[in-house]
């Protein structure tokens, strides 16, 4: 019981202290850029009504999911092909290294040429940016299948699609998930930026509107919402990963115990 309480204390202590300091430091602030924390918190429910959540937050999340899903499918599919054949990999490597080094937001003006300013543009921007970590990590994961495991599969006649499904992709999944996690943070960044650039609704759009209209406390609530979104998505991702990669965590734990 005491251990549980102690963990709870550690969990909440610093955040509460920081929040308290923020509250006190900003309480009688007259600086327009740093409104009192109290004001921000009271403005919160006024700004983020159910109506706004539906009209702005929901479209953002949908675009994010669509872009992320496209990137995941394309990244894993292409990455598997490239990783499976040495020649293909050598062929593609310089081009991929260059393409992936381009900071994704820089492509927004180009994508806007092709896709205008509607949802397709935003989904394309998100997908084009977060496909890289997924693709490259899939290539690495597929390439690094343990040779003993590969020979075992071959000796039992496990080839083709069955081999891909049961051996290669499963063996590469820890690496692929690392790529998926990186892609998630990039996806959020691109979602916000693409909406700041050209949109008629969405989180990024809303926050910029507040800033332009000098509705500072509202802007701060928007920042808080973005922060919450990032945090929630990260937690959800970790939960999914723990389920899918349960075997991997178990394997590593047992390896650490008895090297």
């Amino acid at each position: 019981m005491t251990r549980f309480l102690l963990r709870l204390v550690f969990l909440l202590a610093l955040p509460l202290v920081l929040l308290g300091l923020w509250w006190l430091a900003s309480d009688d602030s007259t600086n327009p850029f740093w409104p009192p924390l109290r004001t921000i918190l009271t403005t919160f429910p006024d700004v983020w009504t159910a109506e706004r959540l539906r009209a702005d937050v929901l479209p953002s999340i949908l675009r994010l999911s669509a872009g992320y899903a496209v990137a995941a499918v394309v990244g894993v599919a292409v990455g598997t092909v490239i990783g499976s054949y040495r020649r293909v990999r050598a062929l593609c490597e310089p081009v991929l290294e260059f393409l992936r080094a381009i900071p994704p937001p820089v492509l927004i003006p180009v994508i806007m040429l092709f896709a205008g300013i509607d949802d397709t543009m935003k989904i394309t921007v998100i997908a084009s940016g977060c496909v890289w970590p997924i693709l490259l990590n899939t290539v690495e994961g597929v390439r690094a299948v343990d040779p003993v495991m590969a020979e075992t599969a071959r000796s039992y006649g496990i080839t083709g699609a069955a081999r891909l499904r049961n051996v290669v992709l499963r063996s590469a999944s820890p690496q692929i998930f690392a790529g998926l996690r990186q892609a998630l943070s990039i996806a959020i960044i691109l979602m916000v930026i693409s909406e700041m650039f050209a949109a008629s609704n969405g989180l990024g759009f809303t926050i910029v509107q507040f800033q332009r209209g000098f509705a500072i406390p509202d802007m701060w609530t928007g920042i808080l919402v973005l922060g919450l979104l990032g945090f929630v998505l990260s937690v959800v991702f970790q939960l999914v990963e723990r389920r899918v990669l349960g075997w991997y965590h178990g394997l590593r734990a047992s390896a650490r115990r008895s090297p």
């Binding site: 495991m149 075992t152 000796s155 006649g157 394997l251």
Partner: peptide, 19 residues
């Protein structure tokens, strides 16, 4: 590898599928 033969490798840790 014919279906009539089965292999047992030395490195069991790397031959059994951990997932």
């Amino acid at each position: 590898p014919p279906p009539g033969m089965a292999f047992v490798f030395q490195e069991y840790g790397r031959s059994l599928f951990p997932w």
